[in-house]
Amino acid sequence: MVKGTSTSNEELIRYCDQMAKRIHETYGASVWFAEIMGRRWSYLTGWNEETAASFTARRIELTGRFGVVVEGWEQIPTEESEALIRSLRETITTYEER
């Protein structure tokens, strides 16, 4: 049995999982996604133990509902990081609107 999410959107979680892996493979950053409820950021998917050496985690709100935490954010070139966040925002918004 898998724990529920309030969106019950397994596709979205799959997408986030793939993105977390891709970002890790490309930049070496450790990434996890969370669902935001008030002050709580509830873990959804992602994270990579092997690269978890950085303590400069950045918490980024992607939509009112979802956020991403990146350890090793500084390893991603600025232009690429901006494009990445834009893309994550757009895709997650699309999932939310479905």
Binding site: K3, W32, F33, A34, R39, R40, W41, S42, Y43, L44, W47, E49, A52, A57, R59, G67, V69
Partner: peptide
């Protein structure tokens, strides 16, 4: 922890590896 997604099974993994 609970304000940056270190919850549930994630925090269990983090506890186990000492992180």
């Amino acid at each position: 922890g609970y304000r940056c997604g270190r919850t549930g099974d994630h925090i269990m993994q983090l506890l186990k590896c000492g992180r």
